[in-house]
Amino acid sequence: MSTIAVSSEGPDLDARVDPRFGRAAVFIVLDPHTMVFDYIDNGASQIRAQGAGIQAAEIVADAGAKTVLTGFVGPKAFKALRAAGVGVVQKVDGLTVREAAIRFASGMLPLDQAPSHRQARR
Protein backbone atom coordinates (compact mmCIF):
# COMPACT_ATOMS: atom_id res chain seq x y z
CA MET A 1 0.00 0.00 0.00
CA SER A 2 1.39 3.36 -0.98
CA THR A 3 1.97 6.36 1.24
CA ILE A 4 -0.90 8.74 2.07
CA ALA A 5 -0.94 12.24 3.54
CA VAL A 6 -3.75 13.41 5.84
CA SER A 7 -4.37 17.07 6.72
CA SER A 8 -4.48 17.13 10.49
CA GLU A 9 -5.09 19.47 13.40
CA GLY A 10 -2.28 17.85 15.40
CA PRO A 11 0.92 15.79 15.07
CA ASP A 12 -0.45 12.31 15.89
CA LEU A 13 -2.91 9.71 14.64
CA ASP A 14 -5.61 10.63 17.14
CA ALA A 15 -5.77 14.25 16.06
CA ARG A 16 -8.77 15.31 14.00
CA VAL A 17 -8.56 15.68 10.25
CA ASP A 18 -8.14 19.37 9.46
CA PRO A 19 -10.92 20.31 7.02
CA ARG A 20 -8.56 22.76 5.32
CA PHE A 21 -5.96 21.45 2.95
CA GLY A 22 -3.75 24.46 2.17
CA ARG A 23 -3.83 25.91 5.66
CA ALA A 24 -3.92 22.62 7.55
CA ALA A 25 -1.91 22.77 10.79
CA VAL A 26 -0.02 19.54 10.07
CA PHE A 27 0.26 16.83 7.44
CA ILE A 28 0.51 13.27 8.73
CA VAL A 29 2.32 11.10 6.21
CA LEU A 30 1.71 7.41 6.79
CA ASP A 31 1.51 3.89 5.49
CA PRO A 32 -2.13 2.97 6.17
CA HIS A 33 -1.35 -0.73 6.63
CA THR A 34 1.43 -0.50 9.17
CA MET A 35 0.25 2.89 10.54
CA VAL A 36 3.89 3.96 10.68
CA PHE A 37 3.69 7.73 10.40
CA ASP A 38 5.66 10.91 10.24
CA TYR A 39 4.38 14.49 10.42
CA ILE A 40 5.16 17.73 8.61
CA ASP A 41 4.38 21.02 10.29
CA ASN A 42 2.43 23.33 7.96
CA GLY A 43 2.26 26.30 10.32
CA ALA A 44 4.13 28.48 7.84
CA SER A 45 1.05 28.40 5.60
CA GLN A 46 -0.74 30.66 8.07
CA ILE A 47 1.34 33.67 7.09
CA ARG A 48 1.20 33.09 3.36
CA ALA A 49 -0.80 35.81 1.68
CA GLN A 50 -1.90 33.44 -1.03
CA GLY A 51 -1.12 30.11 -2.64
CA ALA A 52 -1.24 27.99 0.51
CA GLY A 53 -3.02 25.22 -1.38
CA ILE A 54 -0.38 25.04 -4.09
CA GLN A 55 2.36 25.10 -1.47
CA ALA A 56 0.67 22.27 0.42
CA ALA A 57 0.41 20.24 -2.78
CA GLU A 58 4.17 20.62 -3.23
CA ILE A 59 4.79 19.54 0.36
CA VAL A 60 2.76 16.35 0.16
CA ALA A 61 4.08 15.49 -3.31
CA ASP A 62 7.67 15.96 -2.11
CA ALA A 63 6.90 13.73 0.88
CA GLY A 64 6.11 10.94 -1.57
CA ALA A 65 2.37 10.73 -0.85
CA LYS A 66 0.26 9.12 -3.56
CA THR A 67 -3.09 10.09 -2.02
CA VAL A 68 -4.29 13.00 0.13
CA LEU A 69 -7.15 12.71 2.63
CA THR A 70 -8.62 16.04 3.70
CA GLY A 71 -11.76 18.16 4.02
CA PHE A 72 -11.78 20.45 1.03
CA VAL A 73 -9.33 21.03 -1.77
CA GLY A 74 -9.64 24.20 -3.87
CA PRO A 75 -9.36 24.20 -7.65
CA LYS A 76 -5.73 25.35 -7.85
CA ALA A 77 -4.45 22.86 -5.30
CA PHE A 78 -6.48 20.17 -7.06
CA LYS A 79 -4.80 20.99 -10.36
CA ALA A 80 -1.39 20.88 -8.63
CA LEU A 81 -2.06 17.53 -6.94
CA ARG A 82 -3.31 16.04 -10.17
CA ALA A 83 -0.15 17.19 -11.99
CA ALA A 84 1.93 15.51 -9.30
CA GLY A 85 -0.07 12.30 -9.69
CA VAL A 86 -1.50 12.55 -6.16
CA GLY A 87 -5.07 11.30 -5.70
CA VAL A 88 -7.53 13.33 -3.61
CA VAL A 89 -10.18 12.20 -1.12
CA GLN A 90 -12.29 15.06 0.28
CA LYS A 91 -14.88 15.44 3.04
CA VAL A 92 -13.13 13.17 5.52
CA ASP A 93 -13.15 15.92 8.17
CA GLY A 94 -14.98 14.94 11.32
CA LEU A 95 -12.85 11.79 11.66
CA THR A 96 -9.52 11.28 13.40
CA VAL A 97 -6.48 10.73 11.21
CA ARG A 98 -6.41 7.07 12.30
CA GLU A 99 -10.09 6.50 11.41
CA ALA A 100 -9.63 8.17 8.02
CA ALA A 101 -6.58 6.04 7.25
CA ILE A 102 -8.36 2.82 8.24
CA ARG A 103 -11.36 3.64 6.09
CA PHE A 104 -9.11 4.47 3.16
CA ALA A 105 -7.14 1.22 3.55
CA SER A 106 -10.37 -0.79 3.54
CA GLY A 107 -11.42 0.83 0.27
CA MET A 108 -14.32 2.78 1.79
CA LEU A 109 -13.15 6.17 0.54
CA PRO A 110 -13.31 6.74 -3.22
CA LEU A 111 -11.07 9.30 -4.93
CA ASP A 112 -12.60 12.63 -5.94
CA GLN A 113 -12.53 13.75 -9.52
CA ALA A 114 -13.12 17.46 -8.88
CA PRO A 115 -12.32 20.15 -6.33
CA SER A 116 -14.92 20.94 -3.71
CA HIS A 117 -17.45 23.70 -4.34
CA ARG A 118 -17.62 25.19 -0.91
CA GLN A 119 -13.99 26.18 -0.78
CA ALA A 120 -14.00 27.53 -4.30
CA ARG A 121 -11.75 30.57 -4.66
CA ARG A 122 -11.20 30.95 -0.96
Binding site: R48, A49, Q50, G51, A52, I54, Q55, A57, E58, A61, K76, K79, A80, L81, A83, A84, G85
Partner: peptide, 23 residues
Protein backbone atom coordinates in the same frame (compact mmCIF):
# COMPACT_ATOMS: atom_id res chain seq x y z
CA UNK B 1 11.31 30.68 -10.31
CA UNK B 2 9.37 28.61 -7.77
CA UNK B 3 11.58 29.92 -4.99
CA UNK B 4 11.31 33.59 -5.89
CA UNK B 5 7.60 33.75 -6.70
CA UNK B 6 5.96 35.29 -3.63
CA UNK B 7 2.49 34.73 -5.02
CA UNK B 8 2.77 30.99 -5.61
CA UNK B 9 1.99 31.43 -9.28
CA UNK B 10 4.51 28.71 -10.20
CA UNK B 11 4.70 25.26 -8.65
CA UNK B 12 6.98 22.30 -9.16
CA UNK B 13 4.97 19.15 -8.52
CA UNK B 14 7.22 16.16 -8.82
CA UNK B 15 8.57 16.66 -12.31
CA UNK B 16 5.71 18.84 -13.51
CA UNK B 17 6.27 22.59 -13.66
CA UNK B 18 2.91 24.38 -13.46
CA UNK B 19 1.83 28.00 -13.66
CA UNK B 20 -1.20 29.48 -11.91
CA UNK B 21 -1.80 32.66 -13.92
CA UNK B 22 -4.65 33.87 -11.68
CA UNK B 23 -2.18 34.15 -8.78
Amino acid sequence: CVAICQFKAIGLLGDAILTFPEM
